Simulated assay, not measured.
Amino acid sequence: MKFDNKEDIIQLTPLWKGERFENGRPKVPADILERMRKITLEEAWGPLWQNGYQFQFEGDFKIIHPEKTMVGRAVTAIMVPKRPDLHETLLNYGHQEEGRSGFFNQWVIDQLEEDDVVVVDMFDKIFKGTYIGGNLGTAISTRTKRGGAVIWGGIRDNQQVVEIDNINVYYRGSDPTAIEDVTMTGMNVPTRIGKAICLPGDVVLGTPAGVIFIPPHLAEEVVVRAEKSQVRDVFGFVRLREGAYTTAQIDSTWSVAMWEDFINWFNTDEAATEYRHLKWDEELEEAKKQNLNGPSSDVRL
């Protein structure tokens, strides 16, 4: 076996058609990541659920900075309980055949790029299961700039880690012990985090409610649908305050006349400026096909 194997990563992520890192990991564009920082957990969850991705969220974490949103590209790892023969084989392989230094967790952090998030299954180990402390937390901060870590296990040096402002860390518990009696069996492989699954290159969205893993080929769709929902809500609030529409009309499938009213507002109102990159041709055409001349009773998702 090989750690961080390019051929395996490409094989696991065939739906991604964009740029990749040298090791084959999908590289979702930085502008999509930046836009992702402005959406909510529920806005990301909706498109994933509707596309059949129903095991992408886990909320049972402690959070170093619960008030901050975390976004980045996943670098994954799997740790298992130590079995001496397997442990020595894999540790020696990494050192001798792949030229890695230090312990398994250091190998992963040495791979990090800007905007990355470490995603590690530590099989919920906390005592002697502290994947990072102050030193490795600082290394994550330096390498990722604004990423962080999702650890299904423990951390140590919380008083130091909490002082690192530019990253966030989601973890299961704290302990003063160092990491021991664990072996890494995979780097940049499919990884289970609680009830969720994460693949290398997934966009990790960390919120106060928990973490959701967004497949790279759906990242742009998730962002666009979230932004469209946001700006439609802005329009709806404006028209409701004006008394132009009822709440039933705003919350139902829009008529052609409502869509035309919205698009005119969207193109001219200052409140829509940051959303002007969005296009509405499909929505207007769909309304015309349905010949919707008045409000429908269908509630929009």
Rank of each mutant, 00 (worst) to 15 (best):
E7K: 12
L15F: 15
L15C: 03
G24T: 07
D31V: 08
R35H: 08
I39M: 11
T40D: 12
T40V: 05
L41E: 09
E42C: 00
A44I: 01
P47H: 05
D60A: 15
F61G: 04
I64Q: 00
T69P: 00
G72V: 07
R73E: 11
V80K: 08
K82T: 00
D85I: 15
L91I: 15
Y93S: 05
Q96V: 09
Q106I: 02
Q106N: 11
E113W: 12
E114P: 02
D115G: 00
M122D: 01
G134H: 13
N135P: 00
S141G: 08
G147W: 06
A149P: 02
D157V: 02
D157I: 02
V161Y: 03
N166T: 14
M184K: 00
G186D: 13
A196Q: 07
I197M: 09
D202L: 11
V204W: 11
L205R: 07
F213W: 06
V223H: 13
R225P: 01
Q230G: 04
R232H: 13
V238I: 14
R239T: 15
T247Q: 09
S252R: 05
S252C: 11
S252N: 14
A257M: 04
I263Y: 14
T268C: 02
T268R: 14
T273G: 02
K279A: 13
G294P: 01
S296L: 07
S297E: 13
